[in-house]
Write a protein that binds this DNA or RNA. Structure first.
Lengths: 193, 193
DNA sequence: CCCTTAAAGCAAATTATTAGCTTTAATTCC
DNA sequence: GGAATTAAAGCTAATAATTTGCTTTAAGGG
């Protein structure tokens, strides 16, 4: 289910990865993210600190991995019968989840790893969700924008504000972006080839 | 020039802040950002480590401050006689600067502070640049989009890809966004009130 | 089953960070 | 202008985090 490309993924390694990930999530819940450090996590997870340092390198990388796991969709987007409806429901859920301090921290944690892999994986998760909605709409015969258009003009502005704005994006903002989206720029979008 | 809201900004404090900031920039140039740590910076800057810990809290905050300083525009955008031209030149410069590994790291560093202030300040710098271009265009009598529209549909997609895409945005991508921008959605944009 | 080896445990050495106290120098108040 | 005041830096000792070398465990392959 996860990025277990480890050379020896059987049993113990996977067990420890799970244990550490779960421990981090629990500690974030109970103690808050600010107070986390490697020795604390190690003790709570019942492993030795050097295990964490050797597998993840540092706290930032571990938090990034845990945050990425949280961004992985657990289901296909709710189907409402129209692209517009699908987008509204999905974006509503996304904004609800991500405008909290916890949510914004998740995004930052993903980006705080020096490796770009996690950020890229996160973007791909989101794109997949959009693609499902677009494919459904296309099957219904709706005239649909490209997934690039969706990302450029709907998703990117929301993420930009989540990351950079002192006041997070709200539902009204998202709905206006959807409105524009459904009127203009259905296709012929840049694909950054 | 900077966020010197310190209660005692005279002489020494400012000197030390400058010295530390300069040292960080130099060390990033010469040693690379990965190898940086607080004791190293302190020694190179000729201060004691506890000074850095007390003023900045930790390395992430210091790097965030230095990165923010780099994002501060040193001049008004080049004036070309048209909004489109201004945008093209400015975005071209921005992309050239930010698509390098160093550039992308600057953005991430700004976001890696737990305080959102620096990210907000960064967004404001950029908005000011756009506002200058828009005001010029309005004075010339051009029909102009809102700065929100510019941020949502031109700048946000570029930043999104800088942060999340394994392959960074290129000039062609930016030009296509500008093209769309100049044709559709001149006004009535969401302002996230 | 045994052999090989990736990954975990353990402990010592190193390095980073914090905290208490002293000193310096910027600001304030005569 | 010259003390008095105090924010911020320096210094050092204590504490905590990280790295490293070696040992042990257990997964994967003959």
């Amino acid at each position: 289910m996860n990025d277990l490309k480890a050379t020896r993924p059987g049993g113990r390694s996977a067990r420890i990865q799970q244990s550490v990930h779960n421990t981090v999530r629990n500690l974030i819940e109970t103690q808050g993210r600010e107070s986390l450090n490697v020795p604390l996590i190690a003790q709570a997870a019942g492993v030795t600190p050097s295990t964490i340092y050797r597998r993840w390198g540092d706290l930032a990388q571990l938090l990034s991995d845990v945050a990425l796991e949280r961004m992985q969709p657990d289901a296909a987007p709710v189907s409402t019968g129209s692209l517009r409806g699908d987008l509204e429901v999905w974006i509503e859920g996304y904004i609800e989840e991500m405008t909290s301090d916890v949510g914004r921290t998740i995004l930052r944690d993903i980006l705080s790893s020096p490796k770009i892999e996690n950020a890229d994986a996160c973007a791909n998760y989101m794109r997949q969700q959009f693609d499902i909605m677009l494919e459904r709409a296309a099957e219904r015969g709706e005239e649909v924008p490209s997934s690039d258009a969706l990302i450029n003009h709907l998703f990117a502005p929301i993420v930009y504000r989540l990351l950079f704005a002192s006041s997070p994006p709200n539902l009204a903002f998202a709905r206006e972006l959807i409105d524009e989206m459904m009127v203009t720029g259905k296709s012929c979008e840049p694909s950054n080839s």
